[in-house]
Amino acid sequence: MFDFFIHVASIACLYGVLALSLNLQAGFTGLVNFGLIALFGCGTYGAALASGMGWHPLAGLPAGLAMAALLALFYARLGRKLSSDYWGIATLSIAEILRISITNEQALTGGAQGISGLPLLFADLKPYDGVPRLALYALVLVLAWFICQRIVKSAFGLAMKLMREEPQLARSLGYDLDAIRRTVMLISGAIAAFAGFLYAHYLTFVGPDQLMSPETFLIWSMVIIGGIGNNWGVVAGAIVMQFAMAYVPFVKDALDLPTDFVAAARLVIVGGGLLAFLLWRPKGLFPEKVGGSRGR
């Protein structure tokens, strides 16, 4: 039971990092990205590439970050032409195109089978390897949170919020919205890819099924439920959602329900949670604070 708790907490930390990445885009800059999972995938496949090519595992990190940067720039470039809602649809489509391409490509990505046998972090510390791993993921989460907080409370953070709420006013004051979008996509893309790299070396397996679009919506549910536009909130949302999802099988066992209850219940938690919060508490558990910039 303790090992399971460590496992769930580890995954929750990585999802927390992803929620922070999405929050930077959607929460603070108004970039409604439904293709976040592809940026995460750049990190996982960066790790897979290093493993497949026989490189040092750490070489997968710059590879993943470089792929994420390219994809982030492509997403940002699309945003020049498309308004917010159409951009959201375009990002979802691109993420799906990439996933399907990976599924049908064999040489580099291993196709639908994916790539397994990636080295596990701290594997030589078994059976106590889970704790240092969790500590590392928690440290990454804290670092990501710190970076995000610094950004949103700075003068650049003001620019992001102005772009989110009043793009016309921002343009009239001389803000370069394309540059803001590009910068935000690059930073949040790097954060998501970093989470992906760690995730790949945690599961020791990378496959296209990890990049299904429901994963993006799971991250969205964490952001909405936790509190969009609040970095504390989205981390709390990630932890709450991850633990809720992980403990569904225990409820199934306790109530003696059939096995397919687990998958159905998880869908209900994500979809129902999203719907309930959007209807009754759209600002989430921890609403965004007005006036949080670092002046004076």
Partner: peptide, 26 residues
């Protein structure tokens, strides 16, 4: 003119002087 909901008056006024602020401002 339409003004932001999640920024204070002071922040909007500050934003008038920050259009060149890049990521270095963090």
């Amino acid at each position: 003119p339409s003004m932001p909901h999640k920024m204070t008056v002071r922040e909007v006024l500050q934003a008038g002087a920050s259009s060149k602020a890049g990521l270095g401002s963090i």
